[in-house]
Design a protein around this nucleic acid. Structure first.
Lengths: 117, 117
DNA sequence: GAGTTAAATAACCTACAAGTCATATAGTGT
DNA sequence: ACACTATATGACTTGTAGGTTATTTAACTC
């Protein structure tokens, strides 16, 4: 068992809710309440805990305004992740254009697959 | 509790051992045994399970040679991750050079921090 | 065919992530 | 001071990831 926890960016983005929060914040800063409101299936404390993880991993910044906490994305926090994945980019079929073609092909392939079943 | 498991690339790379396996395979294809040998702290079945996750998430390919399984990295499997993080790249302070400067600064900052304690 | 080698699978254990409800903290307004 | 609002924290529960040992599967060697 790994007991060395080291919460890092890889861990932070492994959760779909946290990715959704980041995606939301990419559209602009929001209060914790406004964020929580976008996740009706989760409770306020649930979102609060996700925000804590994002804080701890330096993926968001918080500013205080009265009782509110305004969360802002810190895209630099993703630098480590970008750095890591970029290493593999060199191994991609070809250039970025090839990657885009690949992604498009995969997208339509998925559609076709969905139709089949 | 999330019970929709959907093992995806984000989950796959959240584990440090699996990232290390990918990093290893980036240097060339290897048999399961050769991979396991690089992780003396883990047992063979332990590595085998990690390899299963990488297989299931399409991050590696396997070819059979006698009793051996030769694992090859499939960097295209990281496309989704790259796609996701690239969205945030636009929000980065400036250009790629700025990112690199940032990473360098962070690296030396970490060294300084380590010295302090 | 018996023994050996390589890898996967099964059964099991334990720590912890992700969720809940209840409560605490802290700022606002009257 | 008191009620209200916004968010964080504590205590607790549960599912599962990540590890183990033992076993199975399958191919090769003699």
């Amino acid at each position: 068992m790994r007991m060395i926890v080291t919460k890092n960016v890889f861990f932070a983005i492994s959760d779909p809710t946290r990715r959704a929060v980041l995606d939301l914040l990419a559209g602009g800063s929001r209060t914790a309440g406004a964020i929580a409101a976008r996740f009706p299936r989760l409770t306020q404390p649930g979102i609060s805990k996700h925000l804590k993880v994002l804080r701890d991993t330096e993926l968001v910044d918080v500013t205080v305004r009265a009782q509110e906490r305004i969360y802002t994305i810190k895209p630099q926090g993703l630098a480590e992740l970008y750095e890591w994945v970029a290493k593999y980019q060199a191994m991609w079929p070809d250039t970025l254009e090839a990657l885009e073609r690949y992604l498009d092909a995969r997208a339509s392939g998925e559609k076709a697959r969905r139709k089949k079943r």
